[in-house]
Amino acid sequence: MAGQHSAAEEKKHHKHEGPKKHIIAFIFSILLTVIAFAMVAAGEINTSFIYISLVMMALVQVFIQMGFWMHMKDRGHIFPIVGILMGVFVVFTIVIMAEYWAWW
């Protein structure tokens, strides 16, 4: 029976995670969004602290989105990861060079 695979081979090819991790990631994303909104809405918090906190929460949010919703944590996603990193590098280079150009 050439068309049949053993149970070990099936597990090796595809492992279903189930909804538990997705629900946890969704709740964590909503929690980060609510915290960010509350910090900005409060208005009496130091502006520098708010900026730094928002950037840090945005970075955590990006990693949650990439890891759990786009499945970048799984094997076989090296090309999308390299593409995203190259895009980030190009954008940062453009922003830094534009700042440098505008400054002088």
Rank of each mutant, 00 (worst) to 15 (best):
W104P: 06
M86S: 12
M66K: 05
V62L: 15
G76D: 03
L32E: 02
G87L: 11
V62Q: 03
I94Y: 09
L54D: 09
I27K: 02
F92D: 04
V60H: 01
T33D: 01
E44R: 09
V55N: 01
K15P: 00
G87T: 14
T33L: 13
M70K: 10
I45Y: 07
F89C: 10
A36H: 00
F37Y: 14
K20T: 11
A2Y: 06
F26E: 00
G76R: 04
A25D: 04
L85F: 12
S29G: 11
A58Y: 07
S48P: 00
F89D: 00
L31H: 05
V82L: 15
I35D: 03
L32H: 08
I96H: 03
K11R: 15
I96V: 09
A41G: 00
V62K: 06
S29H: 04
W103H: 11
G3S: 13
H13N: 05
G87Q: 08
A102S: 13
K11W: 09
S48R: 09
F79G: 02
T93C: 06
N46V: 02
A41E: 04
I27Y: 02
H77M: 15
F92V: 08
I27R: 02
A38V: 13
A7T: 07
S6V: 07
W69A: 04
V60T: 09
Y51F: 10
V34T: 12
R75W: 04
F37S: 05
K73C: 06
H22T: 06
F89R: 01
A42K: 13
M56E: 06
M57E: 02
V40N: 07
K73I: 11
L54V: 14
G18R: 10
H14N: 09
T47L: 09
I35Q: 01
A58K: 07
I96Y: 07
A2N: 11
Y51H: 10
A58H: 03
M57L: 15
W103Y: 11
I45P: 03
I24Q: 03
H77Q: 14
L32C: 11
V91N: 00
F89L: 14
W101N: 06
I30N: 12
M66T: 01
I23Y: 10
H16D: 15
E44W: 09
H5Q: 15
G43R: 07
L85N: 12
I81W: 08
V62M: 10
H22L: 14
H13G: 01
E44T: 15
N46H: 10
Q65R: 01
A41Q: 06
I52E: 05
V55L: 12
T33G: 04
Q61Y: 10
M1D: 11
